[in-house]
Structure formats: C-alpha cells, structure tokens
Simulated assay, not measured.
Amino acid sequence: MMTEQLDAMPTDWQRALAIVAHPDDLEYGTAAAIAGWTDERREVSYLLVTRGEAGIATMDPVKAAAVREREQRASAEVVGVTSVEFLDHPDGVIEYGPALRRDLAAAIRRHRPELVLTINHHDTWGGVAWNTPDHRAVGRAVLDAAGDAGNRWIFPELSAGGLTPWDGVRWVAVSGSPRPTHAVEVSGGVERAVRSLLEHRTYIEALTDEEPEGYCRAFVDQVTSAAAARFGGRPAVAFELFPR
C-alpha cells in the first residue's frame, strides 16, 4: 500500500487541454480540479475522441451520440469549460496508431497547451480491475502525441495545413492512474464536480439503479478522499505526472 505523500501539481501554466475517450471520463473526479483551475482564470479545453455512442445499452448509438454530446457540453459548462470538441472515432474500438496520434497532435497544435490531461492508460486501475481498450489507447496516444506535436518531421501534413509545431507541452497529467505522483487540492471544486457528473444523467440512469445524485456524490467523495490520505488530509485529485 502506497503511503508516501503526493507532490503538489505545478501551477506555472495558463492553458490546458484535456483529452479523453468518452463523455463522462473527466467527470469522475478530474472535474473537481478543473473547476479550481478555471476559478483561477486558467484556460481549459476538452477534446473527446468519441461521442460515447456505444455507452448506453438501451439506446440506439445514433441517438446516444447526440444525447451524450449534449450532456458533455452541459457538464463542461458547470466547471467553467466552454471549448468542447469531438473527433468521432468509433466508441469501444478506438485504435491506437498513427491516425489517432495525428488527430491528437493536431489538436495540441491548435490549442497550444502547457498542460495536457488524460485518464488512466495502464492495463488496470490497480489490482485486477481491467481498464477498457479505449482508455488504454487514448491515454497512450496522448503521451505520444505530446511529443509528436512538437516535431515538424512527424505528420508534416499538419504543418502544410497551417498547424505549426507546438513544443510547449511541459507536462502530461494522468488522472485515475494506479501510480499517482502529484495532486491538487479541490475543496472549492467538489460540489461543482458532483453537479458536473450529474449532468450525465441519461448515462448514469442506464448505468446504475442508484439514485443519480447520491451515486455522483459518493463517487466524487471517494476519489477526493482517496487522494487526501496522501495529500495532507485535504480533498484532492491525484495525477501521475509526466514532465516533458
């Protein structure tokens, strides 16, 4: 069991880009940190690789895509994020490879962030809880694309299209990792994180029989309490930080 204290997340940055596979991925804890950052007038943008169309078993994927996009935009607004983009890779079968890396590198060049966020790219969440193929593919592609974005000889067609290289990514921060290294205190963002997750009501109601607000509050509290044990007892969100 890890007991060493987590370091504080860097604060000397202004722009972040959060890249995840599905609507709701950022709301299971990370949104509490994002709420605090937007309060500090930092710029945070979201990039969703899919529209989560395969995530609701009782709903046709075409309809689900529209519902989940709408819920994601409302969810982002709760924590002060207005820039939300979708790439339309197929939900559930995202392929790691050059095509995905190129799309992510293009987004990084457009947004020019210093901090890039994603969620757990490891095979498990710790122990035997197996991670999904989409999370693993996107997380690993994000780590690679942070470098691709700055190399003019990788995907030169991006430069030809006006997306000049951006070598300004200083960190990639992975939430939900079983190997966290850093954390950010989120006392001021917990309530908004709960409301942000609750905006995914259609998805949550199909996912669980629990009352939605209680489900959201319990999950956010569990995530922020788990990190608090290694961050001075303060509600926190933990990240595995990869400096560049």
Results as ranks from 00 to 15, higher is better:
Gly214Val: 12
Ala105Tyr: 03
Pro235Gln: 06
Arg140Glu: 09
Thr58His: 12
Ala76Trp: 10
Ala149Arg: 05
Val62Trp: 13
Asp60Ser: 08
Arg73Tyr: 04
Val169Ala: 02
Pro98Tyr: 08
Glu69Ser: 12
Thr11Gln: 10
Asp12Asn: 13
Asp91Glu: 05
Arg15Leu: 05
Leu104Gln: 01
Trp37His: 08
Ala206Trp: 10
Pro23Trp: 13
Val81Met: 07
Leu207Met: 13
Phe155Ser: 05
Tyr46Pro: 01
Asp12Glu: 13
Val62Phe: 15
Leu87Trp: 11
Trp125Leu: 14
Ala145Ile: 05
Gly36Glu: 08
Thr30Glu: 08
Tyr215Met: 01
Arg15Asn: 12
Val116Phe: 01
Leu115Ala: 10
Val186Gln: 00
Ser196Gly: 03
Glu205Arg: 13
Glu240Val: 11
Gly139Ala: 04
Pro90Arg: 09
Trp130Thr: 11
His89Cys: 14
Arg109Pro: 12
Thr181Phe: 00
Ile94Glu: 04
Arg101Gln: 04
Arg217His: 05
Met59Ala: 13
Gly233Trp: 05
Asp24Gly: 02
Val79Phe: 10
Ala228Glu: 11
Ser225Thr: 11
Thr50Val: 06
Ser83Ile: 07
Ala141Trp: 06
Tyr203Ala: 08
Gly168Thr: 04
Ser83Thr: 14
Pro23Lys: 13
Pro10Thr: 04
Gly29Glu: 09
Arg70Trp: 11
Val169Leu: 03
Thr118Ala: 03
Ser75Tyr: 09
Val78Asp: 07
Val20Asp: 05
Asp144Asn: 11
Gly36Asp: 04
Arg70Pro: 05
Val93Pro: 04
Tyr96Ala: 07
Met59Glu: 15
Glu4Arg: 11
Pro212Leu: 04
Ala76Glu: 07
Leu47Gln: 06
Gly92Glu: 02
His121Asp: 10
His121Cys: 14
Asp209Ile: 06
Tyr203Phe: 14
Glu191Tyr: 09
Ala32Asn: 07
Thr50Phe: 09
Arg112Trp: 14
Ala183Gln: 00
Leu6Lys: 01
Gly97His: 14
Gly29Ser: 07
Leu87Val: 08
Gly97Arg: 09
Gly189Thr: 05
Arg70Ile: 12
Pro178Ile: 09
Asn131Gly: 13
Glu199Lys: 09
Asn120Ile: 09
Ala229His: 07
Leu143Asn: 10
Leu104Gly: 00
